[in-house]
Amino acid sequence: MQSPLAIEPLFHLGPVPVTEPVVVTWGILLALGGGAFLATRHLKLVPGRGQALLEAVVSTIDSQIRDTMQVDPAPYRALIGGIFLFVLTANWVSLIPGLEPPTAHVETDAALALIVFVATIGYGIKARGLAGYLKTFAEPTWVMIPLNVVEQITRTFSLVVRLFGNIMSGVFVIGIILSLAGLLVPIPLMALDLLTGAVQAYIFAVLATVFIGAAVSEGEAPAPQAPAPPQKTEAP
């Protein structure tokens, strides 16, 4: 019996197998990219409703980064905001019949976590320097070095597993109920999936912010407008 988690390639580009999550991600990429391009073509000083919504989203992302990291959000806006928008969109792709969220496959979540992992290291080194970043592994004492290294890896895995488990389980539950009960019964669960998808996107983005913020903290000047102390966000 084949594992339900296994994915079969839809086609091959040379030696590269292209699977459904990749294709769906391309669709998301086109939708988000095209939508962003179209939405930002005619920005005005006096915003309309759509522009106001975009600015509210960007302002909220900036505010979240500033509140969490206590630094200027500009260098991290694209990474954190992009990850949030992608995860949110990917999670909500399940609303389209016949499509599975790319985040319901571990490869996508792993790719996201890997990006966050690399970005954390990169931002840490940029903020503190290589030696300074490496020194953070010896805090509070050198005895903690193994534990800190393990923490770096495990929290990346926790990002993968949390997102993958929540989204994959939702897809599986809806699929099972759909096969057992009928067409309209899973609708409440799909609504719940919407909430779960939004919450998971927020959690993933916030955890990425926290990880990067911890890496760059004490290495960068605080943000000029820091309205609140740093938040301690824990995953559910």
């Binding site: 930002t40 920005l43 490869e107």
Partner: peptide, 26 residues
């Protein structure tokens, strides 16, 4: 392969969003 493609896809998406969404809005 999927992991690598997804990583590339996400990076491309981050670039596109940075270029066509965040930058002009900001």
């Amino acid at each position: 392969w999927t992991l690598a493609l997804q990583a590339i896809n996400v990076l491309v998406l981050l670039f596109i969003l940075s270029r066509f969404l965040f930058r002009p809005v900001v």
